[in-house]
Nucleic acid binder design. Sequence first.
DNA 1: CAAAATTAATCAAACGATTGATTAATTTCC
DNA 2: GGAAATTAATCAATCGTTTGATTAATTTTG
Lengths: 208, 208
Amino acid sequence: MKTEKVDKRQAILEAAEKLFCETGYEGTSTRQIARESGANMAMINYYFGSKEGVFVEIMNERIAGFASQLKIINEDKISALEKLHKVIEGYVNRIMNNTAFHKMMHRELSLTQRPEMYDKIKDAMSQNMQLIDRIITGGIEDGSFNKVDVRMVIASIMGTITNIVIAPHKVMSCSNFDLNNPKDKKIIKERAIAHLQDLTTVYLTTKR
Amino acid sequence: MKTEKVDKRQAILEAAEKLFCETGYEGTSTRQIARESGANMAMINYYFGSKEGVFVEIMNERIAGFASQLKIINEDKISALEKLHKVIEGYVNRIMNNTAFHKMMHRELSLTQRPEMYDKIKDAMSQNMQLIDRIITGGIEDGSFNKVDVRMVIASIMGTITNIVIAPHKVMSCSNFDLNNPKDKKIIKERAIAHLQDLTTVYLTTKR
DNA sequence: CAAAATTAATCAAACGATTGATTAATTTCC
DNA sequence: GGAAATTAATCAATCGTTTGATTAATTTTG
């Protein structure tokens, strides 16, 4: 009895994240969230004040554990290329281990509602961008990288990952891959990391 | 009064596309569409049967003029690299001249509602992917391209463009760029084309 | 310790507002 | 005059939220 302690609050958050990801914020009703989580409808407002309160809670929670992780990498006494490869590996892993949130995040970025949430996501993303920017710019300054359009290279790195997560999986391969299948996800992750590391190595360090 | 002949049907389509882009399909009400287009609410159902009918009409209309354009390129008697560069130029131009639709399209791809629309978009996209796939594979087979992960290269090309369109513009540059400003859009377009052509050239043709 | 008081968690039911859709009447146009 | 276009009014359904009541757990008190 004491072991079977179900945290309704957490259940609501988990159900809501799943539903928001699948059918969008406006496309998800509070009744769906209640049904899916096994909680009463009133509990949503009891714990989070409103439907939007649930959404904000989810996003803040996720964003919090977003920018923190990669910071240390830039401190290491390793080459710019090795730093970049580490960042790519970390970035691919984190995003592909949280595909649902990442979809929500990008959908929110393409809307003009909830500007405060838009700004919050933008700020979180720009932290990651600045980290990559500093690494590449550093590499250019110490002569180990070619002179390139840094912001466009960043767009390629981030865009590649997002494309893999969002674009139709079936198109990704000849047969039917599925990002929800752990085995398939592992394969895609490794391919993505290998590709991006190879691409950046060739593009940034080839003498020409 | 009589000279002011406004096509209500077209007005509804245009207002709906703008609103769907800004606030999403579920986030847009038929009353908003009616108000914005200057038409009576009943006209939406009169012309399109339903709210979803408007959405389907918009998407079909746009998708129709999507895959048709690039086909001819592959026929040209030019090198694989030149073909690829032409495709990149055409692709960047078409997407960045229709950013609103492109946002809608990608948002729809990240949802699980309306599977028939999902499939339609997926099919349209996969046509473009197959075109690029054939060009790159052809280049590998005739020895002018390195052996690479073709699908990942395609993800990088398409992902880069999408990232530029959707990700926060302000982050794209030091100062405040705006894709709705024609002058800024032209600059970004040229930078994107130059970057992608340079990136693919180096990555695909550098001997190593 | 045990009775009383307080708090937190949960529920079914209902709220007013808004949704997409439809009706029936009217206007416009050829 | 009649078909097409347009309107205001209305529909049932669903939306997010609130309510008042109930249960279970905790704290206070004598």
